[in-house]
Nucleic acid binder design. Structure first.
Lengths: 208, 208
DNA sequence: TTCGTCATGTAATGGGTTACATGATTAC
DNA sequence: GTAATCATGTAACCCATTACATGACGAA
């Protein structure tokens, strides 16, 4: 069995590294912390959690703070809190440092970046620069294709293309700034995660 | 049977509306004309083409310009040129005007826009405004969620979020300009597709 | 004559959603 | 008491990719 998504797995491990959570909350975080980049449904999440548990990377805790045994006997379905095991933590650390060449592809880059505060500086640089050259390569292809086909495209298609290219160029500039800052020493992240006052009581389902 | 993708189908019909093509070339166009938005593989394309044929929307033409019968007898596999049938054209026109509420979702908007020169002005306006309000709604959610969680996010996550929001804001501004232009009468598209000098002889596989 | 591109196709697999089913807890 | 939200889960399906298989054509 089953369900090894890569991004999803990575994101779950990363979020749980900060603090234990149950699935429902995990999903909300998944769809906000990771920006616009990804949105997962329960149909993906829960099976993946189970898989990670059977891998030994997560452990289930059947809500010890259960409001007492009153309901416990009647097969009452409990909140399941997931927590990263030692092995899981180790595995996540592995994934963080390894970061193969698709760490800078569209699907992965977002999640990777989201956990940069847990990532070594040199790895961060590799990923940022990898991403940048990936985008520059893409830009070149776009420019070439545009030059070849410009005159046989209608204005809307042209405008679409132009806007697309500008988006990519904009991301390149963004990466340039980030790389600059990393180089300058002040990584804009103070170091590890800011762990003050996590309360966990906010409403509203946040799927953009 | 099988393979009804929505976007892919739409794009194929739209591209073939301009001129007949065989699958291979169709794919290249798919991955350039539609900008960064989509990339399809043959594994999707060919089955879809077959399906569209059996729907009666496309017709196959087994390359009449075959360099003569010399090879024709030996079961030689021919280039298959696909052409839009009358029914297909009608169906595409249908799709263009109908444009339900997911015409302005991420998956569809790109293709829709790519064929705006075949689209009535009022439909164009509906789609552009629909897209814009979709994005504004998204922005609001992002802002709200950011306000709620700002202080417990590390700087990288924050930066990711910020950049994500800016991207959306940028697209909104782009839409504003487009809507403005549509209103001003000069739709930036002269009308129909520019049909001069289609030569069809360019190299290089263009998948960004 | 071999290499790169053109050209068409299929089966297996992957990664995800939708829709459904269930039930607890909170707020009105 | 009832509606919304919290919470967990499964099965069926969908859309697309990957890997593979096949072969023609042109240029070096």
């Amino acid at each position: 069995m089953s369900r090894r998504s890569g991004v999803l797995e990575f994101a779950i491990l990363g979020l749980l590294r900060e603090s234990p959570m149950h699935g429902y909350e995990l999903r909300k975080r998944l769809n906000t912390s990771l920006g616009v980049f990804r949105a997962f449904s329960y149909g993906s999440l829960y099976p993946c959690l189970k898989a990670l548990v059977s891998q030994g990377w997560l452990a289930e805790e059947h809500s010890p703070e259960e409001p007492l045994a009153a309901a416990a006997l009647a097969g009452r379905r409990a909140k399941i809190v997931y927590r990263l095991t030692a092995a899981g933590k180790e595995h996540f650390e592995e994934l963080l440092t390894h970061s193969g060449p698709d760490a800078w592809e569209d699907e992965q880059f977002g999640v990777r970046f989201a956990f940069f505060s847990h990532t070594e500086r040199d790895v961060r640089m590799r990923v940022l620069e990898g991403r940048r050259s990936r985008l520059e390569e893409r830009l070149e292809k776009m420019r070439a294709s545009l030059a070849r086909t410009r005159e046989r495209l209608d204005n809307y298609t042209l405008e679409l293309q132009r806007h697309g290219m500008e988006s990519v160029e904009r991301e390149v500039r963004w990466l340039n700034e980030l790389i600059e800052m990393e180089r300058a020493g002040r990584g804009r992240a103070k170091g590890l995660h800011a762990d003050q006052g996590r309360d966990n009581t906010d409403p509203t389902d946040t799927t953009y």
